[in-house]
Structures are given as C-alpha cells and as structure tokens.
Design a binder for these strands. Structure first.
Lengths: 340, 340
DNA sequence: AGTCGATGTGGTACCGATAACACAGTCGAA
DNA sequence: TTCGACTGTGTTATCGGTACCACATCGACT
C-alpha cells in the first residue's frame, strides 16, 4: 500500500546494520558471508520489500543477462514457436528474453534493434524482415552485438544462421503437384528481397524444369505475406487464361487468403485449384486438417538459434560461422487433392 | 567490425570538444544548444556510433519509459490481439513495451513479475494466471507499480480492470443451445480460480435456470485451458449416460480439443454434439468458419487497458478504480448446428 | 552606465549497484 | 611466538547518464 519509496541496497544495509557490499554479496549468493549476517540481511530485504535494480546492476556489471528475439509477426504460429524455442534455451542458461515484433516493417525493425542496443542486450536472435535489414544488422556488427539469423539469411551478412530447406521443400511440394498431373502451377510469393522467397522460387523453378514444364512468368505473382496478400495473389491467378490448376503459396497465412479468394470466385480447393504451402497452422489444422504443407521444425529453429547465440556470446572470437539447414516434413492433407 | 569499445557520452563529448552535459542535451533534444554545437555533437555521435545506454539513463532519470504486458499464452490468438492493442497505444505515447508469456504457470508469473519490478517498468498490463496471482499483484502494489488487469479480475485486488461480459456471453451461448432444443448441455471449464471461468459458469447456470432445466453436476467438467484439456473434458462427457447433446467450452483452444475428442469417438460436431465457445481463432475460422463463438473484442481489451494504465501512471493518486466490461459479439457458425 | 533576463555551456553530485582492494580477526603450522 | 592463509566485512571508485546550479556573455531597457 505504501507509495513505494524506492528501497535501495543502502536502506537494506542500514536496516541490517551492515555495509552495502555485504548486502550485494547476499543477493548474489557469493560465499563470503557468515550465516548470521546473511540471515539478518535477508530479513531486512524481506521486511523492506527490496528488489535490486537491474538497471544499476547492469550498469555496474557491464552485462545485462538479457537477449532479444525479434520476429516479424508473433501472431504467426511459425514465429510463435520459434520464440518459444529461444525462451526455453535462454531461460535454462540464465538469460532473460526480450521479445520484439517488427510487424514485418523495416522502420519498426530499425527502431527495435536500436532499442535493443540501447538496452545493452548481450545478443539477438532475429528473423529479419528482408535483405534490406542488412543496414540494421551491420549496425549490430559495428556495435559488437552478436546475433543469429533465423529462417532467413541476408546476403552480405556473415553470421550464424538457422534455416529451413526452402529450395528442397519447395521442390517436394511442387513435384508432388506435378505428380498429381498438374502442369499449370501458380506460385504466390513475397518480394525477392526475402531469402526464403528466393529459395522457394528456385525450388519451384527447379521442379518445373526437371519435369520439363516451361516456366510461365504470369503464373508467379508477388504479394504481401499475409491473408490479404494471398487473396489478391490468388485473385490475379484466377483471372489468368487459362487459370492454374494448382497453386503453391510461400507460406501458411498466404494460403489462407488464397483459399478465401478461391471460394470468393465460386470455386473449390482442391477440386478447382489444388493448393500447397510452407508452414503449418497448428490450431487450424487441428480443427480442420486440410492444408498440405511443408511443415518446418519451428521450435527447433528457436532452440538451435539460441544455442548458437549463447555459444557466441560465450566466445565472441570464435571464427567459424555456422549455417544450419533443417529439412521440413511433408504433410499431405486434402488441399492438394491427393488424399481421399 | 570493431569489437565495440563501449562508446560513452564522454567519448562523444571529447570528440566534439564540448562537455558531457551538452551531449546529453543534444540527445534529449532539449533546447538550449546552439545550432553549430548541435551539429558538431551529432557528427561525433554518428562517427563514433554512439548509442546512449538505457540503463544509465533510466538509473539517472529514475524512470525507464517502459511498461510490461504479461499474458498466459502469446500463442493464443486472443492474447496476441491484446498484446497488439497494448503495443499500439503504448508506442504512440512514447512508451516501450516488454512482452512476457507466463505459460499459465504461476511460478513463471511470479518470476516474470519480479523481473519487471527489477526492470523498474512504470506499469503493467496483465492477464493474470488465476486468483492465486493475488500474491504477486499485492507485491506489485506494495512496490508501487501501477497495473491493469485484463480479461480476468482477482478478488481482493482493487485496481483498474478491463473485462469481457463473461456472464452475459455465456448466457447467450447457452440460451442459443437451449433454443435449438438441447436440454443436456455439457460445460468444459477450467478451475474456479479464474474469474472468467466462474463468470461463464454462472452464465451457464443462469441460462439453465431460466429455462427451467435442472443443473446436472456431472455435465460440468474441469479441464486445463488448452486442446489437451478439451480432449479429456469432452472424453469424460461422452462417457456419461446419457451423453450431452451439446457442449459449451470455456474458450477457443478447449473447443479444438473437444472437437478432436468427438471425432475420436467416431461422432460428429454438430450432428452428435453441438458445440459453442468463447473467443474466435481467426486463422482457423478463415480456413473453416465452423465454430459458433462469443467473439470478444480482444484488441480493444488491449488498447483500453493500456490507456487506463497510462492515465494511472500519469496520476498515481487518482482514487477511483475503473472497471470496464465489454460485450462480445455472438457469431453463429456451424458447430452449434443452427446454421445450414 | 548599470541592471536584468535570456542564452549557451560547464561543473558537480548523484542514481543503485558492483569490482577491486584493504583490513581486522582467527587458526594452524613452523 | 610469529607468520601466513583464510574468513568476513568495509571503503572507494566507477559504470553512463542526468538534475541542478553556476557562470560568462550579450543585448535591451530604465
């Protein structure tokens, strides 16, 4: 109830009849404190409601014990899982995690990164917005903050990376469609400034080439990576002549919008248009196991990313940069028209 | 590339040939600096790559400009939206937001709250785990940190609250089922230690009473608030004799599990069991508009909560505590068996 | 001419913790 | 008995900023 007079280590010291240093030793569990003194100090802490300031501690110790996770969209189950993975590993190693959402906006990403530097976090796990994040990442490098890229790499930035196998995954998805007899296969993808988009496009093109299907540029459309983008992209594809019989979308949320567009056109998935995409949507698939997807081990992205980061924090000089590529799991459901 | 020698305000001062105070004035945009000096200082900041430390600033200013949002599960779309609402309002007011996920775990909640006190956040928007969060909240009060409860209130804690109309919402859902002819209506709910659970139970009971249907305790089952809980809860209900013809689940994730259990039993929703619940799952409903729900204005919970908090931070002495109750929107889809 | 207010800048003392060192007392070994 | 190692505790400086006050300068007004 009291209006919280900021209790400091000195207040505790006075109340316990010891010096501030001794209180500091108690709250940091360092050994050199007699049991009797420790008890008195702990009683004083309890009684005064003392909570040591992280600000002061961080300033004095020159380390904060915090790392940041930065993702474009916490609401996307794919990134939510990544965050969870990072948190688990970090917490187990005694690090706190600060979670930041950039909403896939480069300007917000810049702010957030600046903010994290100001917070003096000891490292960052980041799924960057796009190649244009390069400037922000360079700034981190200049500033000496170790970081690990997750899900997307950025050309020109040399660091640890954890990726899915976008090329291979896309190939498998598209080859599956081809195997089902499709020849006109659309692709809804985001800007080429995102490495996963480039890689998935490459997988798409390779699969077509292998099957001897010529690439039709009108079947590849750009869209924002959200349901709205999916709607627009699919609408464009459906307006083409002849329209594609199957579509591959760059991720889960785009697929949702694409399906809405198909329905809005009075058509059905998979009867009129077969559909495959990257990344599952757990809750949706529980309710309605519909989407055929390349499911990526998102939580593992997070745990591995955090491990790499913690290693690098421990030994910044380590020269070799590691790139981990994790294969996805191909899950066939109904949207591709293969399953009963 | 340089190993980041921590550049401080003094380095900048030296490099610009001014005092530290003047640099401080420049980075805080305070007026009293000549244009010429400002230019020199800005050049030095740029050249040295200086980023002012939030730790030092917070310590010295005795305020951090940060607030925390604490939710039980960021992956739940309901809470994700709340977070988004808080972030929007806070950012617009110049506050930074620290996001914390307690995973509905009381111990983690305690840690996280302690952590936020140590961070000296200026306020907290929190969806508490349960009534047992009372101890943590009291600690916040003692510590003098203003906070706003979202979605759940905690008896004995007097503060600003933003709630959904759980009693009324539950009544509407259950009355709808009754209107469809159901008499044996099950209820899967979490522990009575959560205010929303209590309130929804009350709405459930009131609706039954109004319709003259006697309350059958075997139709009310406790479960954890996640898909696993929903599965178990529904399994229990289905094992009853005679089994319920309709079920109301306390929230969206529980509904998912419940549906899985129905299917696992070789039955169908809504043919064999009608189903209604609180809170929509946006992505799932886009793909498959199936769940009949009481949709709550989650993002508004967040924006209002943040506004109340910011007001209180601005004027801690404000005596009157406000409770805002927001009505939900009843969305009829197929799971209740009413829609075609 | 002298006083006043505004303007731009610097000096100093903190904010709350910890690192590094100092030091008094105790105890066992030489 | 004396020395050294060890234990428990205190002193001081410092981390990187900011609040507060002092002060020099300058033009304007009585």
């Amino acid at each position: 109830m009291a209006p919280a007079p900021n209790v400091t280590i000195k207040d505790v010291a006075r109340s316990a009849g010891v010096s501030a240093m001794t209180v500091s030793r108690v709250i940091n569990r360092s050994e050199r404190v007699s049991p009797e003194t420790r008890r008195r100090v702990e009683a004083a802490i309890e009684q005064l409601g003392f909570v040591p300031s992280r600000l002061a501690r961080g300033l004095s110790r020159q380390r904060t014990g915090a790392i940041a996770v930065i993702v474009p969209d916490v609401a996307n189950p794919f990134f939510t899982l990544i965050v969870r993975g990072v948190e688990d590993v970090a917490r187990r190693s005694g690090y706190r995690v600060i979670l930041c959402d950039t909403r896939a906006d480069l300007a917000i990403e810049r702010e957030v990164i600046e903010e994290m530097m100001a917070h003096r976090v000891e490292g960052i796990v980041i799924a960057p917005v796009s190649d244009r994040s390069r400037a922000h990442l360079r700034r981190l490098q200049e500033f000496g903050v170790p970081f690990v890229l997750i899900d997307r790499l950025v050309p020109g930035i040399d660091c640890d990376v954890v990726l899915g196998d976008s090329v291979g995954g896309a190939r498998i998805l598209v080859e599956h469609l081809i195997g089902l007899g499709h020849r006109r296969i659309g692709f809804i993808v985001e800007s080429d400034e995102v490495s996963t988009a480039r890689d998935r496009r490459r997988g798409y093109e390779e699969a077509l080439a292998t099957a001897g299907i010529p690439l039709d540029p009108t079947l590849v459309v750009r869209a924002s990576v959200d349901p709205a983008g999916g709607r627009k992209g699919m609408a464009r594809l459906l307006a083409g002549e002849p329209r594609p019989t199957a579509v591959f979308t760059v991720n889960n949320l785009v697929a949702l919008g694409a399906i809405e567009a198909v329905r809005a056109a009075g058509l059905e998935v998979p009867d009129d248009v077969a559909l495959v995409c990257f990344d599952d949507i757990e809750y949706a698939s529980r309710l309605y196991p519909f989407l055929t997807v390349m499911m990526q081990p998102a939580e593992t992205f997070g745990t591995l990313g955090a491990q790499l980061l913690l290693e690098r924090i421990g030994d910044g000089a380590r020269p070799s940069r590691r790139t981990v590529v994790l294969p996805g799991e191909f899950v066939v459901r109904r949207s591709c028209g293969a399953a009963g």
